[in-house]
């Protein structure tokens, strides 16, 4: 797979480490979250067959976190964003 890095251009997938579903960006607030919210965040996944948004870390490159939208049926990479931008758009950071 070739990952079209928004800053560096096309990069080999072997340079990356995959963390998992991009829903991990939406971490519940540990001071207020319910047991169920924390349990589901840590352990439960949608695991869809088809389009999947996931967090990739460019460990062998610029060490940026990316949100890669990819098909789990064909391995086609549909869209790549900087995780920073995605998180900011969701109000995760200042």
């Amino acid at each position: 797979m070739i990952i079209n890095h928004p800053l560096l251009g096309p990069r080999d997938s072997a340079e990356f480490v995959v963390l998992g579903d991009a829903c991990l960006i939406d971490r519940p607030d540990g001071m207020n979250a319910t047991f169920e919210e924390l349990h589901d965040y840590a352990y439960v996944r949608d695991n869809p067959a088809g389009e999947h948004r996931e967090l990739w870390y460019h460990e062998q490159g610029d060490r940026s976190w990316l949100v890669v939208t990819r098909s789990t049926l064909t391995h086609e990479v549909i869209k790549v964003d900087l995780a920073r931008d995605v998180a900011r758009a969701r109000g995760r950071s200042r």
Binding site: M1, S13, A14, V17, V18, N47, E54, T72, L73, H75
Partner: peptide, 15 residues
């Protein structure tokens, strides 16, 4: 190491 339902993998793991 990535989510997939395709019954095939990629070359980095072959290597």
């Amino acid at each position: 190491g990535y989510n997939t339902y395709a019954q095939r993998g990629n070359l980095p793991v072959v290597e």
